[in-house]
Structure formats: C-alpha cells, structure tokens
Amino acid sequence: MSEQSIPEFRKTSYFNPYVGGVLLGLVLLAAFYISGRGLGASGAVKSAVVAGVETIAPSHAENTKFYSDYADAHPNGPLKSWLVFEMLGVLIGGFISGAIHGRLKLQVEHSPKITSRKRLIFALAGGILFGIGSQLGRGCTSGSALSGMAVLSMGGFISMIFIFGTAYALAYFVRKLWI
C-alpha cells in the first residue's frame, strides 16, 4: 500500500477510544451535576432556526402556532439557551483539539471511490434527514441517545437502538459511499 493510499484519518493520532469514552462520560456527568441535564446538539440548531424565522419573517412567526408556542416557552428568546452556549463551546473545543493535533484543514473528506460533489450531496441529504428525525425524536445522538442512556431512560435506549439499528440495516445498500 503506497503512502498516498492511506486515508487521512489513519495518519493522524486520536485518543484511545476507551480513554475518550471515560472523558466524555465525565463531561456528561458534569452537565448533570452542575445543570441537572445532559448534553445535546440538535436543540441548539433548532434555536438558530427559530431565531432565523423570527428575524426574517416576524409576522409569520407570530401567526404560526409552533413559533408562538416556542416563544411562550422561551421568554428570553430562542438563543439564550443552555444548548446554544454549549454548542458554541463545542465549536471552540473542537477547534482547540484540531489545532493541538494539527488537523485544521479546509477540505471535503470522502472515500477515493466517490467525488467531492457526491459526498457533499449525500452530506446535505443526511443533514436534512437528521434534522427532521431529531425533531420527531426530541433529540439526537447526544441529547436523546447518549444522555438518555446515562439516566437509564426508556426513550434513550429506544433512540439508540433505532438510530444505530437503521444505519446498520441500510449500510450494505450505500456501501459504495464509504468502502
């Protein structure tokens, strides 16, 4: 195997996964201990969407039940939320780790068997599906599955089983995207 054929994610060094897992568990425990809640991600994106709609189409937001209910439930505005601040931290924490480990690079990462364009089309499609699914499921892999499992909630385990189970079930059919 030539030097060039080794995928980039194999050339860089990452934490031992079990060490990374314990550290992630401790971050999650800190969130419960300090704020009484788990980690999350999709909720922050929802806050951004609601804030965007309220800014761009204020009368539409006022006259649509979903947004007016959301505004009633979040009297300080959609952006003054725990998850929004947490996700700003995620961007900074991810950047710090990337800088320390020499991984900062503007690029499209994809299998050599597909084009960048194809990768980006599927990234968009995957994002749209994850966006819809995370709203129906009241949280994504972090907020519903991981945080839910840590508190032994039924919702957390069912989320985890259906997210990972569906991805495994479909993996064979889209294998050309990845292997």
Binding site: L91, G126, G127, G133, F162
Partner: peptide, 27 residues
C-alpha cells in the same frame, strides 16, 4: 420513527449533529 430517520441520515451523511460541529470547527 425519529430514530429511523436519524439512522438513515447518519449512514448517508456520515455525521450526527454534535459530531458535525466538530467537523466544522476543523474545516
């Protein structure tokens, strides 16, 4: 149903919401 839609998004998009933000952070 939400979990199934997220699973499809995961295998097509290669990220979940939290991980995609760390991808954004490094370019």
């Amino acid at each position: 149903v939400g979990g199934m839609i997220m699973g499809a998004g995961f295998i097509l998009g290669g990220f979940c919401p939290g991980t995609s933000f760390t991808g954004v952070a490094i370019g």
